[in-house]
Structures are given as C-alpha cells and as structure tokens.
Simulated assay, not measured.
Amino acid sequence: MEPSLIVAYHEGWTELTLNRPDRLNAFNEDLHRQLAAALDRTADDACRAVLLTGAGRGFCAGQDLGDRVQSDAPPDLGATIEAFYNPLVRRIRALRKPVVCAVNGVAAGAGANLALACDIVLAARSAKFIQAFSKIGLVPDSGGTFFLPRLIGDARARALAFLAEPLGAEKAEAWGLIWKAVDDASLMDEARALTTHLARQPTQGLALTKAALNASAGNTLDAQLDFERDAQREAGRTPDYREGVRAFMEKRQPTFTGRPA
C-alpha cells in the first residue's frame, strides 16, 4: 500500500509530497499524522528548508469528506480543526526554516489555506485556488480568514470566501496571494531549485526573519521595533553573520552553515 506521504531527503532540505492522488490528496487522519510527524523531523538542524507539494493532478482538495464518521448526530467539526488543522498550520508557521509550497493543481478548502501558510508559494499556471467552504455551508478554516485579507485585501477576501470561485494561478500572483505562477512543466524544477537555494542561506537569520514577519500582524510599531532589535541582536551572534561579513569584505560568495552557534 502506498504511503499517504512521500518523504524525500536531499542535501540540506526535505521534500514532502501529499500522496493520495486518487482523492486529490484530500486529508484523512492518516495523512494528518504522517505530515505532522514529518514536519517535526524537519526541525532537525540538518534540514534547512522544506518543500511541500502534491502527487498527481492536484495539490490538495482539503478535507476528505468520506473520512468523516457518518451519523444522525451533528458532527463536531471544531474538534477536527483543533486536533489536526490548527496544529498543522501552527507547525508550518513556527518552523524555524523556510517552507516552500509547489501547488501543482487544484488547492481547495483547507488545501488552499495550507499552501498560504507556507513561506513562499509557487503554482503551476493551470493551478486554481478555491475557498470551497461556502459550497457546503462552512467557514474558511486553517487560517483562511487570517491569511486572505492580509494578502489580498478585505474586498477580494470576502468575495473569494462567499462565492467560492476558482482563482487561477496567474491572477493569484497578480493579486499578491502567491509568489509566482510558473509553467506546469517547470514547476518542480523551479521549486526544487528555490528550496536548494534557501537551504544554503543563513538559516538562523531566515528563521528570525520569519518570526518577525509572523509577529508583525499582531504588533504595534513600537512592539515590532523592539522585536527587530532583539532578533538582530541574536542574528548578529551567529557564525553565518560573521561569515557573511568576511565574504563581503573578501569579495567572494559566502559559505553559510546554518548553525546557531
């Protein structure tokens, strides 16, 4: 039986592929547990970047509705969110290294918002993002109501959430929802090249940058200035800062290790 998640280790980075292509990589409990465990393993210092993608013709269709226990009693969907989706988004945002997402096809419901939780999103030109929740009477979850208005503004966020219309990759790039739309045939090559590049950068500095950007949404300017001060103090004590300065002075490319000390 095929695993629900394919994990491939590269020099300095890890590729995670959602692998339920017959279900458009929709989440069941097994996929949730495997992805959570794999993300926890990427916290190791040997891994300096992560690439997340999907197998087959879609990235992720969100929740596998067939995986839910059917009964006459109303389901507690909040329990599923609390047990699986919220921890998943928190893991990705808290991971002290860049997470790249390669959206290779449809990203719907929680699948769309899983992509938006990542740090840099590339999408095949044929890919579509769909806030599908309103089609079945639900609310955008997995951070959708947080990410959407911050990335594309309130008016567009409301329309996508209410209408559940597909948003193509090129328009998603134009709106600022994702980093870049690329040709389908070159998606994985570009995504792997980008992840390889990030894995060779000053990992601690990127981790602190990620933390600062995460904190900014809830901070006042004064609080954010203090955060930047403290983060810069920590970054300035890393070996990669010293290497970066030496390389600049010596007019050569730096060789970063990603080590905290």
Rank of each mutant, 00 (worst) to 15 (best):
T196H: 12
T196C: 04
H197N: 01
H197L: 13
H197T: 09
H197G: 00
H197S: 07
H197M: 09
L198Y: 07
L198P: 02
L198H: 04
A199W: 06
A199F: 07
R200T: 12
R200Q: 15
Q201P: 00
P202S: 01
P202G: 02
P202I: 09
T203E: 07
T203R: 15
T203H: 05
T203C: 09
T203A: 13
T203Y: 00
T203F: 00
T203D: 01
Q204H: 02
G205Q: 13
G205H: 11
L206R: 10
L206E: 03
L206G: 01
A207T: 01
L208D: 06
L208E: 09
L208F: 08
T209V: 09
T209R: 04
T209L: 15
K210H: 06
K210F: 03
K210Y: 05
K210C: 01
A211P: 01
A211S: 04
A212Y: 02
L213K: 05
L213P: 01
L213A: 05
L213W: 08
L213M: 07
N214K: 01
N214F: 05
N214V: 01
N214C: 04
N214H: 06
A215H: 00
A215S: 03
A215N: 02
A215R: 03
A215E: 03
S216F: 07
S216V: 02
S216Q: 13
A217W: 10
A217D: 13
G218V: 06
G218I: 05
N219R: 11
N219G: 03
T220L: 04
T220S: 15
T220F: 04
T220M: 01
T220V: 08
T220G: 05
L221H: 09
L221P: 00
L221R: 14
D222S: 10
D222G: 05
D222I: 10
D222W: 07
D222C: 04
D222F: 09
A223E: 12
A223N: 02
A223P: 02
A223Q: 11
A223T: 08
Q224R: 07
Q224T: 02
Q224H: 15
Q224E: 07
L225S: 07
L225M: 13
L225W: 08
D226E: 14
D226M: 09
D226A: 13
D226C: 03
D226I: 05
D226H: 10
F227R: 04
F227M: 06
F227N: 03
E228H: 10
E228N: 10
E228W: 13
E228V: 15
R229Y: 11
R229V: 10
D230C: 11
D230L: 15
D230P: 00
D230F: 10
D230R: 15
A231L: 05
A231C: 09
Q232N: 11
R233P: 00
R233V: 12
R233I: 12
E234L: 15
E234Y: 08
E234F: 06
E234V: 14
E234D: 10
A235Y: 06
G236W: 06
G236I: 05
G236F: 05
G236A: 11
R237W: 06
T238C: 12
T238P: 06
P239E: 14
P239N: 13
P239V: 14
P239M: 14
D240H: 10
D240G: 09
D240A: 14
Y241V: 12
Y241Q: 12
Y241A: 14
Y241T: 12
R242T: 15
R242S: 15
R242E: 15
R242L: 15
E243P: 11
